[in-house]
């Protein structure tokens, strides 16, 4: 997996999380990177989840992605 892509996705999450909105669909992430292969983005996101840079946030019916530092505390 390219470290470049990992860094790019992490940076985009930081950039897009500057406002009030902190949670994003995987679809948002693929839209941020229109030139990249969708599957490569998904696999990189999975790695970022494994490394706990990102976290899943689930409503039960839909799943969002969020930077770990913004994951709501109970």
């Amino acid at each position: 997996m390219s470290d470049d892509l990992k860094a790019k996705i992490t940076e985009l999450f930081r950039e897009k999380s500057k406002g009030d909105k902190k949670m994003f669909y995987i679809r948002d992430v693929t839209k941020w990177l229109p030139g990249e292969d969708r599957h490569a983005i998904q696999n990189t996101v999975k790695e970022l989840l494994d490394e706990e840079v990102l976290k899943y946030w689930s409503s039960g019916s839909s799943t969002y992605l969020i930077l770990t530092e913004f994951f709501p505390k109970e």
Binding site: L49, D50, K55, Y56, W57, S58, S59, G60, T63, P72, E74
Partner: peptide, 19 residues
């Protein structure tokens, strides 16, 4: 209040947060 935690290592589904 629904949603949030998915809490089991390696999994992104199977748990539905409720508070």
């Amino acid at each position: 209040k629904h949603g949030g935690i998915v809490g089991v290592k390696g999994y992104g589904s199977g748990v539905i947060g409720r508070y």
